[in-house]
Design a protein around this nucleic acid. Structure first.
Lengths: 187, 187
DNA sequence: CCAATCTTTTAACAAATGATAAAAAGCTAC
DNA sequence: GTAGCTTTTTATCATTTGTTAAAAGATTGG
């Protein structure tokens, strides 16, 4: 089965016409390591399904980078703020590994959401997943200090830890790389 | 016009049957100051439209309170994590002022989402608003220190500032009340 | 009006994190 | 293999934020 359909099947049951039209709208794309799926300043106009690879969503504030989240294989995602508001994105989407995605453009999504109620349910569910994740993130940033946030990351995302640099982990945790190194050293 | 419909009209166009059925599902409720719309540990099973009043969404970690967000009049909201996952809520919803809401139960929402595509669009849009707000919150917590976060709150939510305690503001910013007092004193 | 309670501020000290610089370790391309 | 580059660690000092305690200020109910 097509990997996109294998993914959507676990979220919502689509009837055959919806499945067909959905698949036709997705386009396969490859992004070499270090290239952008979306540059800051552009408008996010696609959802991307990662077949294989790793992407970071990040932004810069006075030369310092901060990472919103990491997306790895088997997820359907976008830079949701720009997608929803049509405003230029504050964030970039950058491939940390050679990354293969299937992308679907916003007009196709809107058309399919309108034609097939279940497709709207699918994208509504994606928003729900994003909301749950972001609420967890906000809670952790409020209640936990950097040491605990690091330990939680190690516990909950051990496989990902092997694929990202400590600099990127620090940018995700919201601390400097030097501070993360200190935390890891146990001081 | 009913305040709920005045609100939904600005988000999505509902046809008359959808409007009627939606209104029939909403129930008016009053919550005195200091009472909970949702207690921590309960499952969030309703959306609430605030006609008048103010609610905080907060949780406790070892006697320390942290505030996720404030909801004031003219918003349709819920504790979204528990609502989506059906897990007991980590968060409480507590009325900071005498609060009047119109509430709609989850089975009614699901029924209406299924019957009327536009109602699903409405609730999808609510998720979208929540996502945009949470992304902004995460960005700010990553890139700004407590002093700047305080200043941003004062700038962007000046009216709300008059209605909440500085203790609650500190709990929202993720700092101690003592630290907020220091920031306000300009040291 | 006043006692009781809650909120906010102030002060002193401790702990966590940032900034900067330099060294060490790891990786890459030739 | 090694020079050059990037990543990570270490060290030092500055700044921010937390902790605790106490005082000052505001609010509430009788």
């Amino acid at each position: 089965m097509h990997p996109v359909l294998a993914y959507t099947d676990r979220i919502v049951k689509l009837d055959p016409p919806a499945r067909d039209e959905l698949l036709q709208a997705f386009v396969r794309q490859e992004f070499p390591k270090g290239t952008c799926l979306l540059r800051a300043g552009q408008v996010s106009q696609h959802y991307h399904f990662i077949e294989q690879g790793l992407v970071k969503s990040s932004f810069y504030k006075e030369d310092k980078e901060f990472i919103m989240t990491f997306f790895k294989e088997t997820i359907l995602f976008t830079e949701i703020n720009s997608y929803l508001t049509s405003a230029p994105s504050k964030y970039q989407l950058l491939a940390l590994e050679p990354t293969t995605v299937y992308s679907i453009a916003r007009p196709d999504i809107e058309r399919l959401c309108h034609r097939h109620h279940a497709v709207e349910t699918l994208f509504r569910q994606l928003l729900a997943f994003a909301s749950v994740g972001m609420m967890k993130r906000i809670s952790e940033m409020l209640e936990e200090n950097a040491t605990t946030r690091y330990q939680l990351f190690v516990q909950e995302k051990a496989p990902l830890l092997q694929r990202i640099s400590l600099g990127d982990l620090a940018a995700y945790l919201g601390i400097t790389q030097v501070s993360l190194s200190r935390i890891r050293a146990g001081r």
